[in-house]
Computed example of a mutant assay.
Amino acid sequence: MRRSRWLHVPFWATYVFLYAPILVLVVMSFNSGDSAYTYEGFSLEWYGELAGDERIMSGVVNTLIVATGSTVIATVLGTMLAVGLARHSRSKTLDALALMPAVLPDLVLAIGLLLFYGLIQLTLGLYSAVLAHALFSMAFVAAVVRTRLTGADTSLEEASRDLGAGPFTTFMKITLPQLAPGIVAGALLAFTLSLDEFVIAYFTIGNHEQTLPIVIYSMIRFGVTPKINALAAILLLVSFTAVIAGQRMTKIGERMPRAQD
């Protein structure tokens, strides 16, 4: 039975609806004029101006610090959490609690973290934003690594223990190499989420530092300019690259058990 060609129309219409605004933003970032809404010709001048803007460069540095620091913490803790849930616990309640930060609204999580920091009298700064982003991203890392664990070969771990290896040696030499693609994919996802996160950073970073999303927010209050379009286009490129790389690592991890068989 042949499928009707009309069935492809909703599919492609959905993609156009999703990506047409992004395409317009990227095209307008190469606008030679000062207007963000009228295309006057091709130019790279706005990308050149980004490098000379101290506020934007400071936001880039702060964003990279927060994203890198939170990714390291989230990857380590998320991997440990996934292994603990998969190997040492069968509680559905614990599974739900582990994923709770990922499904909570960002605003609720941000306000809760702000109140908690106030309760323990922690001064806000880059380190508080790093901890907040790590908490948010850890759930996503745990979910990705947990998925990878479901396809891992447990017989290798059992053989390692039967041969006298301890839990730590078994984890480092058997479990960790099998989880490596999932861990890398989770780390890339955590980095991307931290890179673009605005609400949690806005509430937990304080008044002295600003990440790039906060800088963009403060700039668009006075109107959208081609410089903002150029900055957003660069963020899109970095995000897409990280997401695609994470997807590729996940597929590589899925093919590894078949290759071993």
Results as ranks from 00 to 15, higher is better:
Ala67Cys: 05
Ile111Ser: 10
His88Glu: 13
Val66Met: 11
Ile56Arg: 05
Thr79Ile: 12
Pro105Tyr: 09
Gly52Gln: 15
Ala67Tyr: 01
Gly84Arg: 10
Pro101Phe: 00
Ile56Asn: 08
Ser58Phe: 05
Val60Lys: 06
Thr75Pro: 02
Leu115Gln: 07
Val66Glu: 09
Ser58Arg: 11
Ala96Thr: 15
Asp95Ile: 00
Gln121Arg: 09
Phe116Pro: 08
Val60Gly: 01
Val60Cys: 07
Leu81Met: 05
Pro105Asn: 09
Ser91Cys: 01
Leu97Tyr: 05
Arg87Asp: 14
Arg55Pro: 00
Ala86Phe: 09
Val66Leu: 11
Arg87His: 09
Ala51Pro: 07
Ala98Glu: 10
His88Cys: 07
Lys92Ile: 01
Val66Cys: 12
Leu77Ala: 13
Leu64Met: 12
Ala102Asn: 13
Met100Gln: 03
Gln121Ser: 11
Leu99Gln: 06
Thr68Phe: 12
Gly69Ile: 01
Met80Ile: 08
Gly84Asn: 10
Val66Ser: 11
Leu114Asp: 02
Thr71Glu: 08
Val61Phe: 08
Gly69Arg: 00
Gly118Tyr: 02
Thr79Glu: 05
Gly84Ile: 03
Ala110Gln: 13
Val66Ala: 09
Leu107Tyr: 04
Leu124Thr: 15
Gly112Lys: 05
Ala51Asn: 11
Leu97His: 01
Thr68Glu: 10
Thr123His: 15
Arg87Lys: 13
Ser91Arg: 07
Ser91Val: 00
Val61His: 07
Met100Gly: 04
